[in-house]
Design a protein around this nucleic acid. Structure first.
Lengths: 340, 340
DNA sequence: CGAAAAGACCAAAGCGCTTTGGAAGACTCT
DNA sequence: AGAGTCTTCCAAAGCGCTTTGGTCTTTTCG
């Protein structure tokens, strides 16, 4: 059932039927009702390919997915995706993942824009002076950045959490509890979020005349193994930290293991606070010693970004507005006063 | 730059240019070279929307993504996706995720097929007599099932691993080591893979005249927390198992925690084998006691399924061929002879 | 050498929608 | 009553590609 058949059946022109269905004003309400009714009754659905060719709109949002043997898609991604899906579903938006060589995403961005394959894109895990942000900005496709870049000479729309504030709070609490030697086990410091977190910790320490010691900050891909190694290395130092702030729950898993292996205890020998993106399958309250966290649902962020993308596509949102979400600090058993 | 302009520039008809570019035989090789060359030089890329309207082909594969507040996308999904992306990237295939209400995926499947939104789809986490498989089969779109259903009255193409064989081997080894009371901490037993795994364990036990005791098998969503709870419940029984086979590494994390909380040790008091889908961020060899596993890379499965889908789209693969991959059994420190 | 076959190309008809540029009739206003 | 204004509808022109159904040469072969 296509438009031609439907309009013939109603003894109307395609123009009128199309307009009636798309809510244009220049059609009699009585006629519109007839059309809508007939369309429903015959299960007419406009062919998206045709509509796409005519309008250029696709009803899809895009994401360039870095892949490659050496590239691991972050488990955070899936949680973000859940949120995106939550929103997209109720708006019949689909998501197009375009896999790209991690080292050459630019080509893919250009392709999906040139081909008009999607109405908007989002960018995640931005870095300082991120080239993707610059590219997408000049290509002129609607977009939102999940997180922030830095040092770009233009503004852009983003949704981020207050990483600096969160880690500032966490570190401040530890200092207040008497800790003098803090360490930070961070994510890849090429990414802005990690930079912000480190900045937050340093600022909190500086407020009490302390510094983040040389060798007391690690930047690693966030795996359990890296958490273990980093913690082990830290705790075996002569100036071992008495408190660690950690960028991910998965790494915290490794930290806990290292602590145990070394015959130490949490929070007796070491206080630990980690960032929690809220995974349904790994909860800080279920750690053997319940883990204190800075918490922000990455899933909610996904939903929000889908919402903003939809708004941008339909022209409801414009400009380079950035939004920064506050982060909760949730205290559980893994923090205590400094030992000794 | 569109076809019209390009053909005008070459003083050829659109027909000839189109055919030259698409490899049709009825065009002079010399002409073809000229055309291809000019296309490249001017950066001509056929508009996919137009091609789509004309041919019905989209160059995309689809996946209906169950979403909803109560639905968690499995972290396995992302690993699978990596594999899919690895292949898709090199073939300029995109992946369309269509979020759907978890309780009504049927509507979405019908929509994407009716709308010709994708050339093929894959189905994951199938259940016995899975309605999605039946639906997709009748809708007539190319598809591959990742895993297997059961009790369907037709054949269908799938790629699965030998879950039954793997868990049979694991259980057999434990029995050989003298274990008499095994337990199985399984995934959601609505899904076929869990059923197969249970079957494997039971078969191995039966071969030695043993059975999987009432209460010695748990079926749960695969989270750390559920692993902990299940293990705790099992180990506090009067007839506590001396060995556990576990369906996921994430659950195994919980098992390890429960063992420790109860003051027990691995493998002294309990032998443990878990299934490993090969996550880059959580490795069995890095457990405090290195974990024995049945191992199969879900990422490789993703790549394979992309490959088969591409083959089906282009007509290179047909029929309902199913393939079952063998699973490795990797022995590490977490297994030992039965205590006592 | 003439008929049939093969080779190389083209004009035009879709694919199914949106949108432009009217046109016809009904209504208002002076 | 005639000019202007709405209201409501339509024919036809795209959107940019593929594909059908030719035409015109050139080659092959009995």
């Amino acid at each position: 059932m296509n438009l031609k058949q439907l309009s013939h059946m109603l003894a109307l022109s395609q123009t009128t039927v199309s307009r009636a269905l798309n809510g244009y004003p220049e059609v009699n309400e009585e006629t519109r009702r007839r059309v809508i009714d007939a369309a429903k009754r015959h299960g007419y659905r406009p062919n998206p390919s045709a509509r796409r060719l005519a309008t250029g709109k696709t009803g899809m949002i895009g994401y360039v997915l870095p892949t490659g043997a050496a590239v691991d898609i972050d488990p955070h991604f899936v949680e973000f995706l859940s949120g995106l899906g939550d929103y997209a579903r109720s708006h019949e938006l689909d998501l197009v993942l375009s896999p790209a060589d991690a080292d050459d995403q630019e080509t893919t961005y250009r392709r999906i824009v040139a081909n008009r394959q999607v109405d908007a894109v989002y960018i995640s895990s931005p870095r300082p002076a991120d080239r993707r942000v610059a590219l997408v900005n000049t290509l002129g496709i609607p977009f939102i950045v999940h997180g922030r870049s830095e040092g770009l000479d233009f503004d852009y729309p983003f949704t981020d959490i207050d990483n600096e504030g969160a880690f500032h709070e966490a570190a401040r609490l530890l200092v207040q509890l008497g800790h003098r030697r803090l360490a930070l086990i961070n994510g890849d410091d090429g990414e802005t979020f990690a930079i912000h977190r480190e900045r937050g910790v340093r600022r909190a320490l500086a407020a009490s005349g302390l510094v983040l010691g040389e060798g007391h900050v690690c930047s690693l891909v966030m795996t359990e193994e890296n958490g273990y190694r980093a913690a082990r290395r830290l705790l075996e130092r002569s100036d071992a930290p008495t408190a660690i702030v950690c960028s991910s729950l998965i790494m915290a898993l490794g930290v806990v293991r290292a602590v145990r292996d070394l015959g130490l205890t949490i929070p007796g020998d070491l206080s630990l606070i980690a960032h929690d993106d809220v995974f349904p399958w790994l909860k800080p309250e279920n750690f053997s010693v319940p883990l204190s966290t800075t918490r922000s649902s990455i899933r909610l962020a996904g939903a929000r970004i889908a919402e903003r993308l939809a708004a941008r596509i339909s022209g409801l949102e414009e400009g380079a507005r950035g939004e920064v979400w506050p982060v909760d600090l949730v205290i559980r058993g893994s923090v205590a006063g400094a030992p000794g």
